[in-house]
Simulated assay, not measured.
Amino acid sequence: MVVSARITNFLAYSSLTVSRVSHLGNGSLRYQWLLCRNTSLLQLRSKIQTVVPSITSNVSVPKENIPTADALVRPDLEGLYEDIREGLTNTQPELRQIAQYYFNGEGKAIRPVITMCMARAINYHLDQNAPGVIQKQKKIAQIAEMIHTASLVHDDVIDVADSRRSRPSVNILWGQKKSIIAGDFILAMASGMLARLQNQQVIILLSQVLADLVQGEFMQLGARENKDERFAHYSEKTFKKTASLIAYSCQAVSVLSGADSTLQSIAFQYGRQLGMAFQLVDDLLDFIATSAQVGKPVAADLRLGLATAPVLFAAQKFSELNPLIMRRFQEPGDAETAFRLVLRSDGLQRTKELARQYCNDAVTQVAQLTPSPYQQALVTLAHQLLHRMK
């Protein structure tokens, strides 16, 4: 596979020097009723769908007979949500109910799947089959899902979300204060599980994830930078909010395998690049997908005042987007104007291409591991991400 030089192309795209790029992710949103009332954004989205090439164009997808990552690690993740719910039982009944609410088994568990697939690929590379090591790696997958879900609980409070995965959100059912406490409780229980692994390096790695999540959310609340700094800020913020968890979870399981610094770097970089690509695709889908396809309202980020990659790329062509970004699309007609300008620009295409570059970089990382079904599944995951619609 010929891998494009991401840094070179990135500079060509953005005319910015960005030394650190990062992940992306957003919670569910509360303005479904706004979109139902105002159909102009929906009409614009339909136009975008007709002019934007398929996100998977020119992507070489592995053969269909290769087992998926989900199928390969399904035995490792059997009982994942039951174990998490069990770990959240030792508290007051109502707090237990709130904390367990999102662990109903309906999530895609993509982070545990990536984590365990990386664990198995590293284990294969090192010929590491100790049952004790694998059990600890499973705990990392469980902790990663708990950290992710706790962040969703907090995101739903911050975004005043109405729903999550086609169900009422926790803050709608129990209110903001109890939801915040429940999110904190999930993190506390995850931290206890992490401490019981008794591995100082792993504890440090996943503690960094918690710090990154807080800092990333704080950065998102106050993103009003100079236009020349926006993409760098966006990249750092999105790493902290999404890619950090995937990257450090992958590194943590490699540490438990006994991997050296080179292998740890491979694991970390794969997670980092995949996390970046994941959010870029998510940002693109916010413009071109339907609510049914992505499981949340469309144009969610604009309504939250967030300028994601398509908007930032579009602003390089249309300077009139800059004041809209500065005021976080809060004035009447701002969101509709931003939609139209993104459509007229090459922002969607450039976002798609940047996601493809990150996926290629992720594949380059795992290509250094010994060939195995798990290594190939990690490659497949990267390709599948580019035609994700949910």
Rank of each mutant, 00 (worst) to 15 (best):
L187D: 09
L187V: 10
M189Y: 13
S191W: 12
M193Q: 15
M193F: 14
A195L: 14
V202E: 10
I203D: 15
L210T: 12
A211I: 14
D212E: 10
V214A: 02
V214Q: 02
Q215C: 09
Q215G: 04
G216F: 00
G222P: 11
A223E: 14
A223T: 11
R224S: 14
K227E: 14
R230Y: 12
A232D: 06
H233R: 09
Y234N: 03
Y234G: 02
S235A: 11
E236Y: 11
K240Y: 08
K241N: 02
L245V: 00
A247T: 00
A247K: 04
Y248F: 13
Q251P: 12
V253N: 06
V253L: 02
S254I: 01
V255R: 06
V255W: 11
A259F: 06
S265L: 14
I266H: 08
A267D: 09
A267G: 04
F268K: 14
Q269R: 15
Y270N: 03
G271N: 07
G271E: 06
R272A: 08
A277W: 08
F278Q: 04
V281T: 05
L285N: 06
I288P: 09
A289Q: 08
A289R: 11
A289H: 09
S291M: 15
A292G: 13
Q293Y: 09
G295W: 08
